[in-house]
Computed example of a mutant assay.
Amino acid sequence: MDEAGLLAALPVLAFQAVLAFARLGAAAMLLPGLGEQEVPAPVRLGLGLGLVLLLLPLLAPGLPPAPDDAGEATRLILIEIIIGLWLGGLARLVTVAMAMAGQAVALLLGLAQALVPDPELGGQGTATGRLFSLAAVVVVLGSGLYLLPLRALVESYAVLPVGEPFPAGASAEAMATAAAESLALALRLAAPFVLAAVVINVALGLLTRIAPQVQVYFIAVPGQVLAGLALLALVMPALLGAFGEAAREAFLNLPGLR
């Protein structure tokens, strides 16, 4: 392409780059492992720009040229941003399950009063919730699972072509299904601690009936914490393995991969 042809193509390439960045950049702000709240926003936006530079030659043939109407151009960009946030949110809900499981574990262990800043859930969270959130990031990055949402993001251009209306009904249903599966996963991960809490409380109740003179409260609080931490150390590898399998299955069900 000569210099004149390149100059003539620049407006089209610029608009196509903006369209690609709208979807890729919005998703990069939320993707598990890559879009964590601990990562500064400029770094996440830089990741989105890097994805645009890498993928624009592949995506350009399917992207429309710049429309003459500014309102139509704005509509296209807004739809791409919504699609990016939707895809990133679907993937993010998987790691939120780990944070919710950690919150439940803290409540069952008697550690709900020990609060730390938790960017994943916002505001203050429990120490185990923060531990589970960071463990989820380590699993996603260490096992290469972060590549699956990136692949789904690229393949989404075939499922949701640029310029097509956004399927609000189907997307809302998919988001509700993903949220329900995230909650179910959190409950499965916290199940050993629910069972342990029931056993401990039943044992303490029996102890109160058998030996009323025993100060059960002073035994229950430290005993529950110590037993819970021991159980956490015992089952943590299995929990991380179960989360990894569930995350892989959820990522493979993202639009574009299923």
Rank of each mutant, 00 (worst) to 15 (best):
A176C: 02
P167W: 05
T74F: 08
A27Y: 01
R75P: 03
P165L: 06
I200V: 02
R258V: 13
L24G: 05
A246P: 09
A14M: 03
V202N: 15
P161W: 07
V52G: 06
A22I: 09
L187K: 07
Q213E: 09
L45Y: 08
A20R: 00
T177E: 08
A70D: 14
A197V: 02
R23E: 05
L53K: 07
P32K: 10
T95R: 15
A60S: 13
R130F: 10
A20N: 02
L93T: 12
A101I: 02
G256C: 11
V138I: 15
G169N: 03
V235F: 01
V18A: 14
M236Y: 11
P222G: 00
S171M: 05
L111R: 00
L78H: 10
L54V: 15
R130H: 07
A70R: 12
G228R: 04
I81R: 10
L232C: 03
G102H: 08
T208S: 12
L141D: 09
I200W: 01
A158R: 15
S156P: 04
F193C: 03
L141Q: 04
I200N: 05
V216T: 10
G142H: 12
L134K: 10
P42L: 10
L183N: 14
R258Y: 11
L254M: 11
A158P: 12
L85V: 11
R209N: 14
T74P: 06
V138R: 11
A170I: 04
R92Y: 01
V199I: 00
L85N: 09
W86M: 03
